[in-house]
């Protein structure tokens, strides 16, 4: 394995009775880069994070972190990683400072280092006032911050962030983005799972898209967008009954319809010219147009064109896993 690779997953599968939570995923992250793992709920993102952080043994395949196999050398892997799960994994009865110091000691830092580093992180995450209060008195955003700080206490070279911004208000979300960028800037390799396209687009150097336990695409945000094609024209139709007719009139190879939103969209290589043409054709057919817009493809579009459904729709594995009583 090249020394430049921080972690690598080869053909990893995780099966539960009948459910295939992961079904042959491969990915690789270079040191100091952010790898975005994108997928809807139940796609297998958390399962993959758990495999990489030694919490789950893969049914098939191998996962290596900093040159150590998660299955055979879990202790070596655990010294190199920080994990921030989907739900704040913080001791609510302990103060923020106590949580950090405890983590430091469990990472086998000296008492002095653990204290010093805890103080640094409290400052860095703007928690000075709350440092000596039990965490149960914290707001949601503060809990997330202390949660992330806990996984950074030992400055591990690899960090796994499982949906770090789910449930955060927009301001806290931006703060979190900023922190993640700074971490990567400092040389930390990050695996970031998310179901938000803009998040992956903004933060990730590389993106792997998974759905129902399988990789369905990978590349840089730009290359993924390029796959979907050029700009798209989105037309909101005035009357629901005329949406189908509008679709026929607009035509084209990849015209898409969202009946609930009464929207028809089409790739537009001709730019403004195409816009004019479509509008006049609809006018001639007496179809009322509410609004029309031209937009660059987002990762939402990527997802749509790859899976046929949007990223926010749950896939079936999550339902099945819940029935089994798994987290």
């Amino acid at each position: 394995m090249s020394t430049e690779v921080a972690f690598e997953v080869k053909n990893v599968a995780k099966y539960y009775d009948k459910v295939k939570a992961l079904d042959g995923v491969s990915l690789q992250a270079q040191k100091g880069k952010i790898l975005g793992l994108l997928g809807p709920n139940g796609a297998g993102k958390t399962t993959l994070v758990k495999v990489l952080s030694t919490l789950l043994l893969p049914t098939k395949g191998t996962a290596m972190v900093m040159g150590h196999d998660v299955a055979t050398e879990p202790d070596k892997v655990r010294q190199q990683i920080g994990l921030t799960g989907q739900y704040a994994a913080v001791d609510e009865y302990l103060t923020g400072l106590e949580n950090l110091q405890m983590m430091g000691r469990l990472y086998r830092m000296s008492v002095k280092d653990a204290r010093q580093r805890a103080d640094e992180l409290i400052k860095q995450f703007d928690l000075e006032e709350a440092a000596k209060r039990p965490v149960k008195t914290y707001s949601g955003g503060m809990k997330r911050r202390i949660d992330l700080a806990m996984s950074l206490i030992a400055t591990p070279p690899v960090i796994f962030l499982d949906e770090p911004t789910t449930g955060l208000d927009p301001r806290s979300r931006l703060t979190m983005w900023d922190t993640v960028k700074k971490l990567a800037g400092g040389g930390t390799t990050i695996l970031l799972t998310t179901q938000y396209m803009d998040e992956a687009d903004n933060l990730a150097d590389n993106i792997v898209v998974i759905d129902r336990g399988k990789t369905i695409a990978e590349g840089t945000p730009d290359s993924l967008k390029a796959k979907v094609g050029s700009d798209r024209l989105e037309i909101v139709i005035g009357k629901k009954s005329t949406v189908e007719e509008a679709k026929k009139i607009i035509g084209g190879r990849d015209v898409q319809v969202d009946k609930d939103k009464q929207t028809v969209s089409v790739a537009s290589r001709g730019g403004v010219g195409k816009l004019k043409e479509v509008l006049s054709r609809l006018e001639r057919a007496n179809i009322e147009v509410d609004s029309i817009s031209l937009h660059r493809p987002t990762l939402d579009d990527v997802f749509m064109s790859l899976t046929g459904h949007t990223a926010t729709k749950d896939s079936s594995t999550e339902e099945a896993k819940k029935k089994k009583g798994k987290k």
């Binding site: 758990k50 030694t54 655990r78 799960g85 994994a89 469990l106 086998r108």
Partner: peptide
């Protein structure tokens, strides 16, 4: 039941 178990299990403790 809470996420803290995953955190403890991911540590070299």
């Amino acid at each position: 039941k809470e996420g803290i178990i995953d955190r403890f299990k991911s540590l070299p403790m």
